Simulated scan of single mutants.
Amino acid sequence: MTNLPDLPPAAPEPDPWASLRAFTAARIALGRTGTSVPLHEALAFKLAHAHARDAVYSALDTERLVADLEALGLPVHQVSSQAQTRQEYLQRPDHGRQLAAASNARLAASAGQECDLVFILADGLSATAINAHAVPLLRLLLPEVQQTGFRVGPLVLAEQARVALGDEVGHLLRARLVLVLIGERPGLSAPDSLGAYFTYGPRPGLTDEARNCVSNIRPAGLPYAAAAAKLGWLLREALRRELSGVGLKDQADLLAE
């Protein structure tokens, strides 16, 4: 029998879309080796998947967040939803939309005069995003709304929380507007994406058409300064027009032209 010489491993074939990778973090132009993707791309996919799973199970850095929020000069309340564990939070979204009884009673007892806006920091599906991006965004957004004349209520840090939890919190604190900063569902290129959802006239029972959302807030997505400017304009319009949701569109760029 003739022994065949060992052949060198096949080099990955270049992908004609490779130049487009400069414009997106999406998994395109991966190349291929035979019928498979190159090894380094297969390993990168597994690493991204691990980062996404870690983000879902990440926890708020409560001690640091409370210290950073108190430095902004407003009272800070810590609350939790009815979901007592992370597993319950993931399996019962309805529990994440409602305050635990003790948190409800504590906020109701602390409510003062009506305010224009309450900020809520909620872990959502990526506490990693809140830990990294919420305070830097607030440092820009809070002065902007205060200079406009907004009466800003307490800052609220919420664990095991979903977006609709903000409606109950805002209602209890007598806020005309509530803005929820929340960790978005992590993708394979963005485990730390921050979303901002705001609602005019918050109260339990509202649904998604009553809210506006600015998403993908992070240095690799929508930068803090741009997000603060966009949210500032939308919040001012929401308060002026007394609405949010499908009736409120971001027209700031059109009006500037």
Results as ranks from 00 to 15, higher is better:
183 G>N: 08
179 L>E: 01
186 P>R: 04
194 L>N: 06
170 G>R: 12
175 A>D: 12
192 D>T: 10
171 H>D: 12
177 L>V: 13
181 L>G: 05
171 H>Y: 13
171 H>K: 11
184 E>T: 02
176 R>C: 13
171 H>F: 15
171 H>N: 14
178 V>F: 02
202 P>A: 04
178 V>D: 01
196 A>Y: 07
200 Y>E: 12
170 G>L: 13
202 P>S: 08
200 Y>V: 03
170 G>I: 14
176 R>W: 01
192 D>E: 14
173 L>E: 07
198 F>V: 12
177 L>C: 13
200 Y>D: 07
197 Y>S: 04
173 L>C: 10
195 G>W: 05
172 L>A: 15
174 R>A: 14
175 A>Q: 05
194 L>H: 06
183 G>Q: 04
184 E>I: 09
188 L>K: 03
203 R>N: 03
193 S>D: 00
189 S>K: 08
189 S>R: 11
181 L>M: 11
201 G>I: 01
180 V>I: 15
170 G>E: 14
182 I>K: 01
184 E>L: 08
179 L>F: 02
183 G>S: 05
190 A>N: 10
190 A>M: 03
203 R>V: 12
182 I>W: 03
186 P>I: 07
201 G>P: 08
184 E>D: 08
173 L>F: 10
202 P>N: 08
193 S>M: 01
189 S>F: 14
177 L>F: 04
182 I>D: 01
203 R>E: 15
196 A>P: 03
184 E>C: 06
186 P>A: 02
188 L>F: 11
174 R>L: 13
187 G>D: 05
185 R>T: 11
195 G>C: 08
196 A>K: 07
199 T>G: 02
183 G>E: 06
176 R>A: 13
202 P>H: 08
203 R>P: 06
176 R>P: 10
192 D>Y: 04
